[in-house]
Amino acid sequence: MAANPIEQFEIKNLIPLGNIGGQEIAFTNSALFMVGAVALITLGFTAATAGRSLVPGRAQAAAEVLYEFVAGTLRQSAGEKGMKFFPFVFSLFMFVLTCNLLGMIPGFFTVTSHVIVTFSLAILVIGTVIVYGFVKHGAHFLRLFVPSGVPGWLLPFMVVIELISFLSRPISLSLRLFANMLAGHVALKVFAGFIVGLGGLAASGGMTGVFGVAGAALPLAMAVALTAFEFLVAFLQAYVFTILTCIYLHDALHPGH
C-alpha cells in the first residue's frame, strides 16, 4: 500500500498558539481550510452580487439560485416564520457545502471529515432549536415531547421515545455528515492506492506486467466513478444537513404536533 488512507485526516499544527487548560491550541490545516471556506463564500457572494443588476450575470445568477434553493427549502419545511433563521441556515449550508467540495480537491483537507466539527454544528442547530423554543413558547415547548391523540397509558412510553429521538438528533445529524465524508475519502484513497500498487507491478514487465496493467485499470475506473459519486455526496450531505436543520427549526416554531 502506497499511503495510509487515514493520513489525509491528520490535523497538522501550522502555527502553534500555546495551550489553554492542557489543550494544545494552534492554527491548524483544518483551521486554514475553515478560513479558506469562509473567505471563498463571503468573497464569492460579495463579488457575485456587487453589480446588483436587475438582469443577473452568470455569477449573480448562481448566487441567486443558491439563495432561492435554501430559501425554498426553509420556507417549505419551517414555513414563512422560519425565514428569520435564513442567515443561519444559509451559512450552515454554504459552510458545509464549501468544506465538502474543497475536500474533493486532491491534497486538500476536508474539514467536515472530523466528527468534532460536524458535532459542533449539530449542537449549534439543536441548541438554537432549544433556546428559541423555550424563549418563544416557554414551558409550552415541552409539548414537543407529548404527541397528541395518544391513549393515556401509552403516553409515558411515547414521551420517553420522543425524548430519545430528540436527543439522538444531534448525534445522527453529525455522524451522518462525518461518516459520509470520512468513508468517501477513505474509499477514494484506498482505490487510488490500488492503482499505484498495481501500476508498480505493471512497470515490472512480463506476464505480471500485463496483469498489473489490467489490475490497475480497474481501480482507476472505480476511482473515477467514486470521484463523481463523492461530488454528489458532498452536495447531498450539505443538503441533508440543511433540510434536517429546517425540520428541527420547524419544531422550535411550532412545538405542538
Binding site: I6, Q23, V35, F90, S113
Partner: peptide, 26 residues
C-alpha cells in the same frame, strides 16, 4: 485523527471563529 481529542480544542476554536464571521457577514 478524527477521534484524537488533542485536536478538538483548536478545531472548536477555529470553527467558532470562522462560523461566527461567516454568520455575521451573511
Amino acid at each position: 485523527p478524527p477521534f484524537d481529542v488533542n485536536t478538538f480544542g483548536s478545531q472548536l476554536l477555529w470553527l467558532a471563529i470562522t462560523f461566527a464571521v461567516l454568520y455575521l457577514l451573511m
